[in-house]
Amino acid sequence: MAKIVVDSEACKGCGLCFSACPKKLIKAGEDINSSGFNYAVQVNAEQCIACKFCAIVCPDAAISVYR
């Protein structure tokens, strides 16, 4: 079991994690944060392998990874 938690206020919706995820589980969410960014959300978390690629590439340290 694994998942990521995105700090919605820190995320700027830049999308670097979208391409980094080998399972393509991350996309721009529907909601916006207080800065106006569509922050990243993980879908189908049950497929997450906790590779940490998303968290490593995130320039805002907005992602925590759990396993």
Partner: peptide, 19 residues
Amino acid sequence: MECIYKKPATLDPKGKSGF
């Protein structure tokens, strides 16, 4: 579940990245 990666404590939890 165990946290295996998170924002370092040396980044201000109240701080914002200005980049």
